[in-house]
Simulated scan of single mutants.
Amino acid sequence: MGRRAGAEQLADLPGHALAGVVRMPETTVSPLNAIVRRVVGAVLVLFVVVLVVYLDRDGYQDSKGDGVSFLDAIYYATVSLSTTGYGDISPVTDTARLVNIVLITPLRVLFLIVLVGTTLEVLTERSRQALRIQKWRRTVRDHVVVVGFGTKGRSAVNTLLVDENVEPNQVVVVDTDQQALDSAAARGLITVHGSATRGDVLRVAGVQRARSVVVAANRDDTAVLVTLTARELAPKAHIIASVREAENVHLLKQSGADQVVVSSDTAGRLLGMATRTPLVVAMVEDLLTPEAGLAIAERQVEPEEVGGSPRHLPDIVLGIVREGRLFRVDAPEADAIEAGDQLLYIRKVTPAEEKANRANRTG
């Protein structure tokens, strides 16, 4: 009971306490742009102070007694903003002193902030992350949670980003391997560090509001426990799980998985086919790879297609999805297309799409 009570607290922690657990995608700025922006900001602040001092130059006194020139205004602004303050030029009227208090002093602070912006950026990064985490947790809906960012998890994410056109910030990766999470974060994905077998970690990932959960764990027993936990937290989410051994499929089904993919059996069948029909395996690989060549896709039927046969369409139709059920093209139910049907078909990936997909994979 004590362990569960402690675990429950993680999902209820504020954003600043989750900064080491949740990682939001960052917008990167090149070092040159960052330096130029800071230099421009510092110059603008210096110019404002020079202008203020020069316009009120009668309120300042030079130690030489020959008045304050424009060059003197630049000199005073420089030594004042850098907090050096030699004292050879000083405000003597009440107006000039008031301007120094309410305007030049804040600008001096701003000038220093610009100059030491790198240090302050590091110090404030955690606070910015906390605010972004809080905002994300309030607004995230209908996202995809991917448990495990190994070979299977990365392939699943590639398909989501490339073939399904899912935005990177709508994918949350949960893993215990920090190196894998760093790789996911580099692609703009939101990451959560922790074991997905714990309900509080999945709650931090927003699984209760997710539309899909992809369980790509390295161990079948872990996949079962993750699926069971995810189903308890998200009764309406679509859960897809991967297992190594076919004998564990029924355990995943009983745990709440909607679909189970047997990775070892699938790979074994392809290996066996490759010994006699290697070109068939090449074609299957092409269909399963959305980046180039041919790809299996799904689309809504057009109004003019309703009532016709899927065999007579220009597209090569493999099946019809009707009310959540899949009917192969040779099934009696697929003889005529009905309104609201979805078509599973083979489509050609265009050269422009191939180029964009390659960019996404390497981005």
Rank of each mutant, 00 (worst) to 15 (best):
S309E: 05
E333W: 09
R209G: 01
Q254M: 10
E232F: 10
F70T: 03
L189S: 00
F47I: 15
V145G: 07
V174R: 07
I239R: 08
H193Q: 13
A282V: 14
L55W: 15
T176L: 13
V162D: 00
E167R: 15
G188L: 09
R198C: 10
V284R: 04
P310N: 09
I320L: 11
L107R: 10
A186Q: 12
L55E: 08
T84Y: 13
G59C: 05
V207E: 04
G293M: 01
L318E: 02
A274L: 14
P314S: 11
E305V: 11
Q342T: 13
L115K: 02
G87H: 13
E333N: 03
R57P: 04
A17Y: 05
D177Y: 02
P310H: 02
S195C: 03
E121C: 01
P303G: 11
V39L: 13
R141Y: 00
K64C: 12
N33L: 08
R132M: 15
A331G: 04
V29L: 05
V122P: 01
E125P: 00
T222A: 07
E304S: 03
E245T: 08
V45A: 13
V214W: 00
N357M: 00
H143N: 04
F111P: 06
Q342P: 11
Q178M: 13
V166R: 04
R203N: 07
A241Q: 03
R57V: 06
P314D: 09
V249D: 04
P106H: 04
V243K: 00
T197S: 02
I133D: 03
A186F: 09
T93Y: 02
I74H: 02
T191S: 01
V144N: 02
L251Q: 15
Q170M: 09
L103R: 12
R137Q: 11
T139H: 10
T350S: 14
